[in-house]
């Protein structure tokens, strides 16, 4: 597989199995990224809420 510029088209075609391989990788990484985003947002919200409570607290 000699490639002069970029990846050979056979890479993207995955030898004809592109419709199986790429959705698999997309799903696996999509799930990880979604879980990470969800965790990050929940973490941020929880920190924010706790900070508010602590501020409103003992004067």
């Amino acid at each position: 597989m000699t490639a002069d510029r970029g990846l050979p088209s056979s890479f993207w075609a995955m030898d004809g199995y592109a419709w199986f391989v790429w959705p698999s990788y997309a799903l696996a990484f999509g799930v990880v990224i979604l879980l990470a985003a969800r965790a990050w947002m929940r973490h941020r919200d929880a920190q924010r809420r706790l900070a508010e409570l602590e501020r409103d607290g003992a004067p």
Partner: peptide, 20 residues
């Protein structure tokens, strides 16, 4: 990493709840 992050979320929430 995901498990650690989620655990932190639960602990922060617990703290907020006990404060409330």
């Amino acid at each position: 990493a995901l498990v650690l992050a989620e655990m932190r979320v639960f602990i922060l929430r617990r703290r907020a709840e006990s404060l409330t």
